[in-house]
Design a protein around this nucleic acid. Sequence first.
DNA 1: GATGAATGAGCATTCATTCAT
DNA 2: CATGAATGAATGCTCATTCAT
Lengths: 205, 205, 205, 205
Amino acid sequence: MAAQEVLERQFPGRRAQLKRDILMTALTCFNEQGLEPTTILDIRTRCATSVGNIYHHFRNKEGLIAALFFCVLDDQARLREAYLDAARSAEEGVAALVGAYLEWVTTEPELARFQFQARSSVAKGPQAEELAERNRQRNRQIHEWMLHQSAREIHAAPPELLPSLIIGQAESYCRAWLSGRVASQPLDFKAPLAKAAWASLRIFS
Amino acid sequence: MAAQEVLERQFPGRRAQLKRDILMTALTCFNEQGLEPTTILDIRTRCATSVGNIYHHFRNKEGLIAALFFCVLDDQARLREAYLDAARSAEEGVAALVGAYLEWVTTEPELARFQFQARSSVAKGPQAEELAERNRQRNRQIHEWMLHQSAREIHAAPPELLPSLIIGQAESYCRAWLSGRVASQPLDFKAPLAKAAWASLRIFS
Amino acid sequence: MAAQEVLERQFPGRRAQLKRDILMTALTCFNEQGLEPTTILDIRTRCATSVGNIYHHFRNKEGLIAALFFCVLDDQARLREAYLDAARSAEEGVAALVGAYLEWVTTEPELARFQFQARSSVAKGPQAEELAERNRQRNRQIHEWMLHQSAREIHAAPPELLPSLIIGQAESYCRAWLSGRVASQPLDFKAPLAKAAWASLRIFS
Amino acid sequence: MAAQEVLERQFPGRRAQLKRDILMTALTCFNEQGLEPTTILDIRTRCATSVGNIYHHFRNKEGLIAALFFCVLDDQARLREAYLDAARSAEEGVAALVGAYLEWVTTEPELARFQFQARSSVAKGPQAEELAERNRQRNRQIHEWMLHQSAREIHAAPPELLPSLIIGQAESYCRAWLSGRVASQPLDFKAPLAKAAWASLRIFS
DNA sequence: GATGAATGAGCATTCATTCAT
DNA sequence: CATGAATGAATGCTCATTCAT
C-alpha cells in the first residue's frame, strides 16, 4: 500500500514501526468509519497495541489526526516542489500544479480521502495556527514562483480567484473519483485538466 | 434571514411554524458548531420546544439533518431550473449552471455551508438511496438540456470530466468564500467563472 | 383466532368493537415483544386508532394489561367450573382441574402465554389486591368442592403442597409447549397427567 | 449470603473481586425491583464503582444478566451431578433430580428467584444459542444416566412428558415458596415430592 | 368523543482520557 | 515503557402520559 511508504519516509527507522502501525490503522479506520465515529479502542483492536500506548505516542486523538494530516501536507509538498522545479514557463507552472495534485491523489487515494475529511477538524483544533502557517508558506512559495514568470495571464486574473481557477476543476474531479462517482483515474485527465486551467487564465489577457 | 424564506417555501402554513423553527435553529447550530458536536439539547434550548418534540417531527438527529439537506437540494433545483429555462445556447446553458450556483450560494451562505458539511453524512445514512436518486434525476435533467443544444464543445469533452469542468472552479471559490479565505462575493465573479468554464470546454473542439 | 371469541364473550356488543380490537392487538404485541418493550405507539399503529383513545378506554398501560389479564382469569374460571360440575368423586375432581387447565391452554395458547408473563406484573401493580382476592376466591371454591368429597387422599396431603401436586406437572408441560420445547398438544396428555396427579396424592394415604 | 460463595467459586481470585461485587449487587437489585426496572445507575450506586466499569466488564446490561444466569446454571449443574453420582437405581435417580433441585433452590433462593425471571430474557437475547446448547447438553447427560438404569418406568413414559413429570411438582412448589405463597422450605418436602414423581412414572408400567 | 402534538424525566450506552501496576 | 482497568460526563433517544383543538 502506497500510504505505508509515505509513513516510512516520514517516520523512518525500526523504532518507529509501532508508530507507523498506529498511523496506518488509524488512516484505515478514519476512512472506513469517519473521524468522529472511529474510537481509540477501534484502532487499538486493529493494530495489536494498548490504549495507553497510543496516548503515549500521540498525546490524544486530535494529535493522532494532526500527525496524519501533516504527513499528508509534507508528502504533497514534496511532489509539488519536484514538479515546479521542472517547469520553465507560467503555463508549465500551472500544468505542474495541476499535474502534481492529480498524481498525488491518484497515488495516495487513502491519504487524499483522509485529507478531505480531516481538514476542517484540524483547522478548528489546537493545531490551527500551524496549519495556517503552512498554508501561508505554500501560497508564498507558489506565488514567488509565479512572479518569476511575469506572465500576463497570471497578473491579469483576480488574485482571489487564481487558486480556484487553477486547481478547482482538478480538485472537483478528484472528489468525484474518491467518492466513486467516476471511474477513470485523475491522472488520466492530466493533459485536459492542465489545458483547461490555462485556458481559464487566458480569458483575462 | 434568507434561509427562513426557503423554509417557509418548503414547509408552508401556520401549523408548520414549530417545524420551521426547529430546522432554522438546527441550521444555525450545525454551522456554528458542526454536525456531530451539535446536540439535540443545544437545539432544544435555542428554540422553545422539547427534546421529544424534535424526535416526534424528525424521528432522530439523522432525520433532522436529512430534512434540512433535501430542503437545500429543492431550493437549488428551483433556481437552476429558472436559469436553464432562460438559456438559449450551450454556452448560455453552461453560464446558467455556473450563475445559478453562484447566485444560490451568495444568497444562501448558511444553507450552502450546511450542504458542504452534511453531504457525506447523508450519503452514508439511511437516506443514501433517496439522495442518489435525486442526483441521478438532476444529472439526467441537465444532460437532456445539453443534448438539445448539440454543441461540439459538450460532446467532445469526456462525459466523466464534464461536471467538474463546468462547476469545479465555481465550487472551489464558493468553498473559499464560505470559509473566509476570500472576501469577494461569489456572484461578483459570475462573468469570469462562466467564461472560464466555457473556455475549458472549448479546448476539446 | 380463539382469543377473539373470548374477548367477544367478555366485551359483547358492537360498541365495544374498538375496545376488543385494542385488546387483541395488545395481546399480539405483548406476546411478540414482551410487556415492557411493547409501547402504546406500537399498539396504536397496529390497530388503526389514536393514543388518546387507548388511554380513554383503559386509563393507562397498566390498566390495559390488567383488563387483558382479568379476561384470562374469567375465561379460565368458566371452563374450570364446567369441568368441576361434571365431576362425581375426588379423583374425578382432580382430573377435572387438570383437564380444564390443559384444555384451556391448548385452546388459548396466546392468552396462556400472556398470562405467564403478565402475572408478576399485575401482582405488583395497583390491581394487586383484586388479583389476590380472585385467587383466594378460586382456592376457596376448589377447597369447598374437595371437602364435599371427603377423600383420604386429599386430607392426608400437606395443604401447602396440594396445588403443586395437582397442577404442577400439567403447568410444567404447558410452559414447555408454549415455549416450543415440545410439540404435542397439552390436551393429548390429559389422561396420563390426570392419572399422575392422582397417583401423587395417593402416596399419602 | 449463599450467593456470594457461588460467585467466589465461579469467579475466583482477588482480581475478580469487583466483578463479583457488581454481580452480587445486580442480583439484589434484579430481585428487589425486577429486571427492566433495575437501572445500571442503581447498580453503580450500590457497589462502589463507575458506570463505565460495569460496561467494561460485562459489555451491556444484557451481558450482565447473562453472566449471572450462566453462573446459576453452572452451580445447579454442580449439585445435580453430585446427587446423580450417588444414585444407584432409576428410582434413586429421579429422587436425585428432585432432591438436587429442591436443595439448590432452598440454599440459593436469591439465585433461584433470579433464574425464574431472567430465563425468558436470556432466551430472547444474543446468548440464546449458548443457552439452548447448555440445555441440550444437560438433557443429554440426564438422558444417558437414565438409559443406564434401563427401568421400565422411564422407557414407558412419553419422552416429551418425562421432564415435566419428574420436576413439575417440585418446580411449582418452589415458585410458590419464592413468591411467599407458602411458608415451608422446599427441602422439607424432599421425600414426598420424590415419591410423587416416582409414583407418577409408575402409572405407565 | 377522537386526535396527535407536545412534554421531559429517565435510561442505556459511549468514549476520550488517566494512572496504578 | 507498556498495559488495560477505571472513570464519569455527556448524548441520543424512548415513551408513558397529558391536553388543546
